[in-house]
Design a protein around this nucleic acid. Structure first.
Lengths: 200, 200
DNA sequence: CAAATTTTGGATTCTGTAATACAGAAAGGC
DNA sequence: GCCTTTCTGTATTACAGAATCCAAAATTTG
């Protein structure tokens, strides 16, 4: 009963995440969010309590999306361990390439949130989401690295945990480097070189 | 003539940079800045026009400091090319170790500023400073890599430009990873593994 | 001592923006 | 046709934080 919602809640979250990932929390106004989502302010506040609440939900959805795509790649038994890592990096590069076509870098909600301790402190849920995402990401990466050691595509002397942290570090670094306007082709090279300790 | 300034201008800039590097521009209030610098608001505004102006000057000084320390290491003819890169990474790790003792990660004004396109747009000086810093950083790195290729400490097939970008990427990535609370020892391992394509 | 300038401390103003309020139209279910 | 809910559009409020102002004390030079 009552008029149904005319917009897709998840579409709004995606639009919000798209803004937050490039501008970060503080530099994204509710105005921008309405604009990007194509929703009036009243509707937005009616559906999502506050900017903080919207951010948390957008972050949740953002990491969930990555979690899924990551799992898809990193646990794909058809690929060797090394191929999984390469495919993962390719995904990042592709994202940056697509963003570049729009005239900016892709940005990253996780990098922004990690770099902003105040955000984590103001809402413990943000900290929880980031911690969980990190753990899961590292677990998947370690799995892929172990698989690679078994199938011979990854150096046998590579430590899975250290290797996983390296992959995370390179991805975060790429997010920053991409902001300088470095071309996707170069980003790919950087990514592969960065993982050389695992792949050779 | 007149009462002399009782505080050291550069000390205030350093204190401001210390705040900005962990909280970023938007999440640092003028209150915090006064507090950190031990200066009254009136004095601060008297000496530095505005928060924006203070930020630009703090950023200038921040990158100048790094520029100097970098040049010291990366152009040290007594070290092999590889040793210079290792010393550079050691500096980053050491910074994070020191910050960790204070209970937080070191942060980075450059990473924050790079990730915040709005900042670069609002003040072209910020863009100029970042661009110049990037160029100089890459130049120094390329020099060290070339030196390493000659002295045999760096792989002969390493492309200097790609290598320099890799080093920058790894450093930026470390700034993010450090925020997750990873121990300095691990950070060092990550750094070395990340540069494996150059050092082996 | 006089002039100049900064400091202190607090009060005040200004501004951007998050958030609320509201009236009427629209779109469903019962 | 009635009830409920959401939508549009605009207007208003609330608040945080940047910036200004001020009067009195302090510290220097000449």
């Amino acid at each position: 009963m009552g008029r149904p919602r005319s917009f897709d809640e998840t579409a709004v979250l995606d639009a919000a995440a798209a803004e937050f990932r490039v501008h970060g929390f503080a530099d994204t106004s509710t105005e921008q969010l309405c604009e990007a989502a194509g929703v009036r302010r009243s509707s937005l506040y009616n559906a999502f309590v506050s900017k903080d609440e919207l951010f948390v939900r957008a972050l949740e959805r953002y990491v969930a999306g990555f979690r899924e795509r990551r799992a898809q790649v990193l646990a794909d038994a058809r690929l060797s361990g090394a191929e999984r890592l390469r495919a993962l990096m390719e995904g990042v590069v592709e994202e940056e390439r697509a963003a570049r076509e729009q005239g900016h870098a892709a940005g990253c909600m996780v990098v922004h949130s990690m770099m902003t301790p105040d955000l984590r402190e103001r809402d413990e849920r943000v900290a929880r989401i980031l911690d969980r995402d990190l753990r899961e990401h590292l677990d998947l990466l370690e799995g892929a690295i172990r698989a690679g050691r078994l199938d011979g595509s990854i150096r046998a002397d590579a430590d899975p945990h250290e290797g996983a942290l390296l992959v995370m570090t390179v991805i975060s670094g790429l997010r920053v480097t991409a902001q300088a306007g470095v071309e996707p082709g170069l980003l790919r090279q950087i990514a592969l070189n960065g993982l050389r300790s695992l792949l050779d």
